[in-house]
Every structure is written in C-alpha cells, then in structure tokens.
Design a protein around this nucleic acid. Sequence first.
DNA 1: GGTCGTCTCGTAAACGTTTACGAAAGTTGC
DNA 2: GCAACTTTCGTAAACGTTTACGAGACGACC
Lengths: 343, 343
Amino acid sequence: MNIRRLADHLNISIGTVSRALNNRPGVHPETLEKVLKAATELGYVANQSGRSLRRGATNTIGFVIETGHPAHQAGDQFFYVVLDAMNLYLAEQRYDLVILPCHSADDPVEFLSRVIARGIVDALVMTATRRVDHRIAQLAKSKLPFMTLGRSETPGNYSWIDLDFEGVARRSVQEAVKLGHRRIAVGLPDNDVALGYHYKAGYLKGLAEAGIPVDESLLIRVPTSELGGFSLGKQVAGMAGQPTALLLCSEVTAAGVYAAFAEMGIEAGRDISVVAFRENPLMRFLNPAPACFRLDLDALGTRLGETVLDLLSPDEEIGRRRGEIVPLTFVQGKSLQPPRNPA
Amino acid sequence: MNIRRLADHLNISIGTVSRALNNRPGVHPETLEKVLKAATELGYVANQSGRSLRRGATNTIGFVIETGHPAHQAGDQFFYVVLDAMNLYLAEQRYDLVILPCHSADDPVEFLSRVIARGIVDALVMTATRRVDHRIAQLAKSKLPFMTLGRSETPGNYSWIDLDFEGVARRSVQEAVKLGHRRIAVGLPDNDVALGYHYKAGYLKGLAEAGIPVDESLLIRVPTSELGGFSLGKQVAGMAGQPTALLLCSEVTAAGVYAAFAEMGIEAGRDISVVAFRENPLMRFLNPAPACFRLDLDALGTRLGETVLDLLSPDEEIGRRRGEIVPLTFVQGKSLQPPRNPA
DNA sequence: GGTCGTCTCGTAAACGTTTACGAAAGTTGC
DNA sequence: GCAACTTTCGTAAACGTTTACGAGACGACC
C-alpha cells in the first residue's frame, strides 16, 4: 500500500493525497476528510525511506547508548523511565525515538560516523559523556545536531543537560559535616566519565567550606558496579584511620558497600555513615536506608525531549545551544548519623 | 557527499561505483580498489533512505521494548548484556540494530503498525511477550518477519526463544523438596506475561512429582519489582501456616523479600528458604546469598541474532520458524536450607 | 574475417514520497 | 462581461540509491 494505490482508490492525484496527509494548506476540507478516512481504513502509513529521501529529514531522534559495560553508570530503571518520558514528549511533537546501541567491540567514533552518514536520524542524544569525548569533536564537524546527557569539556556547538553532581557532592559533605563528620571518604568512578570530575569538585568545595584539609587517600576509585561497591566498602572499612563517612557518586555501588560492611561487622550509619547518589527503588530495601538524593526522572526525560527538538528549531533564539543543570533534593536516611567519636 | 559526487570525483559512472561498493561482480579489480579508497578518503557512506527505498530492505533489525514499566521483567543489566552480544553478531553479518521503545501511553499495536508500515526494519525481535499477545496476531498479518523473546500462546508464523522458566521452577521445587520442604510458596507476576504461566506450570509439576497437594493460597501474585517483592515477603512471613520455602519467578523481587523478612525478624534460609530466578550482580551482595540460576547472557544474545537473521534467509530450511528453550543451571545459595521443623 | 563469448562499464529506470509550478474552475469587483 | 484574484488540484521533477539492460572493447576460435 503506497500513496499511489491510495490515490487511485480515491480517484485523485498523489499530490493532493500527500498534501492532505501532511496538513498542507490548499486542500478542500471535504477531500481532506476523504483522504484521512481512506488512509486509516486502508492502514496507509507513509514509507519512511521515501519520505526522508525526499525531505532530507527523518523525524526521528536517536538516543545513543553503550551496551555491554557491566559497570554502566545507570544499571537500574533509570533509562527506562527517562526514555519513557522523553519518548512521550517526542511523540506529542510527532517525532519518533530510536535507541542506537553501540556495542562494546565497536569504536564509538566509527559507530557515530555510520549513524551520521546514513542519515537515519535528525538529531542525537549522547549518553555516558566523557570529560574528553572524541565523539563530540566528531559530531561537531558533522552538521548533525546533537545534545549530551552529561557535560563534557570538549568544545562544540551543542546543548547539554547534566545532573547536579557537584551540588550533590557538596551537599553531602555539608550534611555530614553538620553531624560532626570530618574524615569523609568518597567513592569515584575509575574511568573518564565526566560525572566523576564534577562529583569530586563538589566534594572538594564542601571540604574547603568546612575548613577540612583534603586527604588524597580518602578519594577511592572503583568501577561503578555492585562489585566495585564491594571493593570500595572493603577498602574504606579496612583503612588505618577509618573514615566516619563515605559518599557515593553512584547508587549502584551501595549494595556492594553494604555487603562489604556486613562482612566486616560494620553497620552503615552506626559505624560509618553513607550518603548515596540517586534514590531508586532498591534504596528503600537496603538496611539501614541510605541517605540519598531524589531526581524527577519524568521531568528529566521531558526536558531531554524539549532540548533536543529545540536544536531543530529554525527560530534562532529557540535553537540556541544551552546547558542546563538538573538539581536533586536531599533525602534523609538512617545510614547518615553523627560519628561515634565526634572530632 | 553522495554517490554522484563520488563518481564524478573518480570520473566513472555511479553504476560502477555502486557495484564496487556493494561487492557486485563484474568490476575491474583496479577500479574496485580506487573506489573503495576514495570512499574511505572522502568519508562516503551510502545514504540509508535512498538505499532502502531502492532495495526495499534496510539491513536493520528492530528490538522492541516497552519502557516506563517500573515492574519490567528485567530491570537490571539483562538487556545491556544481551543486546551487546546480539549487536555484535549482527554487526558481523553487516546488519544494524536499533531499539524501538514503545512508551507507556502508546498502544503497542498501534506502535507496531507504524513500525511495520514505515518500513524502517527488516525484522523485529519482540520482548515482554504475553500469553495472549495481540501484537503477534498483528505481526502475523503483516509480512514483516519477527521473533519473540518469550513464548506466547498466540499462533503465528514466527520463531521464539524462551528461558526455561518451567524447568527452573520445577528444579527449584525439587531442590527444596530434597531438603525436606513440603510447604512451598511461589511469587508470580500479577500480569499476563507469559513467563508467569510457565513458571507456575513447572512449580505444579514439581509438586506433583513430589506428591505434594497444591495449596492455592501459596500462589501469590505481586508486581515484578522491588516493592512487589516487599509485599510478597510480608505476605509469606505473615501467613497462618507459614511456608518453609519461597520460590521467585524473578530476581528483581529478591531485595524486597529480604527487606520484608528483616522487618519481621525472619532470616532467609534459617526461617524461610528462598530460591530466586536469575543470578545477577546484585545477588552476590544480598545476605544470605540467594540460591538462583545462572544464565549465559552472551550466548542468549548471540542466539537471538542468529535466529532473527535466519528468518531472512532465502534458504527454506534455514528460514524455517522454530522455538528454542534456553536452559539455566542451578546455583547453590545460603538462602536454601533444610526447614527447621522438617515434616 | 566473421562469429561468439567474456569482461567492463555506462545509461536509465525504479523505489515512494514531497513540493514547485502551472492549469482549471470559481469568485469578486468594476 | 471582463480582468484579477483565490481556491483547488494535477503534473512532473527531485531526493540517493540499486540494478537490468545494452554497448563497446577485446580475445578466441573456426
């Protein structure tokens, strides 16, 4: 069923049918209705290849993820919920969303050049942004509009949305200091993911505000995974001059930290306070409940959709590239208590 | 950069260029080399719209997921790893993989009809298969080849791969019975997802083999989520005539079950034995470690890739539709102990 | 030397859509 | 009643590719 068959069935020309289907002006209301009716009746949907070949646009947004990393930054429902809200918004604006998975054995840059050249999307949302990100340099050279979830230091003409890792880390320090903690450890990612740098910056800022000198041995780099959390917990609990508090730049590590603590007879909150990153369904069922930060995933998804479509706007002001930092709100938890022997 | 510019640059016709790029016979080795060299130099990649418009095929496989369900059957790294292996296989066969997310406010059938009609993929892999699945009936009517991850009872000309839910449930019962359990509860999904039926069937088969009568009150339906697990744990622990063992059709519920037990002063293994479904990174860090089943995610992903490409084979025998059940291997865990008061 | 076959390549049609352009019909204003 | 305009629609070109077809060059063979 193509547009010609539909036109023949209606005894009108394909030009008129196309105009009717695309809500172009200059088609009689009566014929408009006839066309739309016949289209739904015959189940006609425009062929995407033909359309995008002619228009040079696909009405599709690509969301690039990297699969295969067991230490991926968001192992839980994060993307399911965010993508859902984003997809909902895009659908309202008559855009489609496809997820483009770059597999672990593929070169991300090469993967992107295929995506770009084949022209299957009108714009891209990039995730797992690195501090120095070759993909950004490459996209900047191409003319394909894109945005990133997560800031990068690589320059380029793009918009970004980032969670307020710095603010969260700083607030975590503040909350701990308020209770009397002064020896505060922090778990950081062991790779170049941008969030690690921002989290560290917030941590340092918090310490500076409280007049606490930095102890480099308290900055611990582990994979962002359950297993990494286990290693982190072991290291922290086994340190000479045990810290009284531990901040986590990712909630994924929390379960591992708790397990390591349990093995060593340590209880979160009582012995070492813990502040996790994002509140998620699992957090509720860890004992004691970790202090953490709440993020509105729906709002984030919608903002992603809005931001990426803004890139495509012909309006200069709307289409302007911009950055946005999404705040999170602190959620109290039993894992954060005053230290047993306050300094 | 299109094929005409590339051809002009080489002073040959676009026909020859196309033949060279597609490894068609009848092109002089020397020109072949020249074309390939120029293509990489100028960064030429065939435009997907033009190609698939002409060929009627896109060389792309679609993987359909449903987003937004916090109770999705696989909230953890499951898809990341499976998709990675599948994508790797498809890439070797020069196919691309895109993930098509159907958002929660969209009608899955309508979503599919758009996907089908727009012709953006050559074949589909469907997930979250229902026992009665309207999407299957619809795909069967269309000519688009597809397969499902998970069996359905809806007939149609398609291949499927399913985890051995029945075998796992049966084995779980056997392991529990071997230790002396006779009052065995089971947590089942509260929706129409096909796996629930197979899990239940295996559970019933296991009971029958052991000569244990079925107690309907021990079949408990909860959402497949952490919160659902919490509810499940509460219900089981609070039952008059408390069961001595609890089987879980999904590992996602395990953390919630443990938390509910903890609140009620019950310990998994000691008071109520627990057998979870799939081993995942989180399982290691629950205490006591749940007995569960190991699944080779890489192999599953590769099989998905092989199976979906087989659908496209012109060879009658290779292209035959077939079903396949993936076995899982039992992993002992401290959560499974003899009952305190053996019957 | 003519016929045939092989190798290599150019030409042009086709895929399904959108849209610039012009034609036909109808409407308005004088 | 005619010019000018508006409304509505049909025609055909264009998007970038693949591929059927045929043409030209060349060698082999009788």
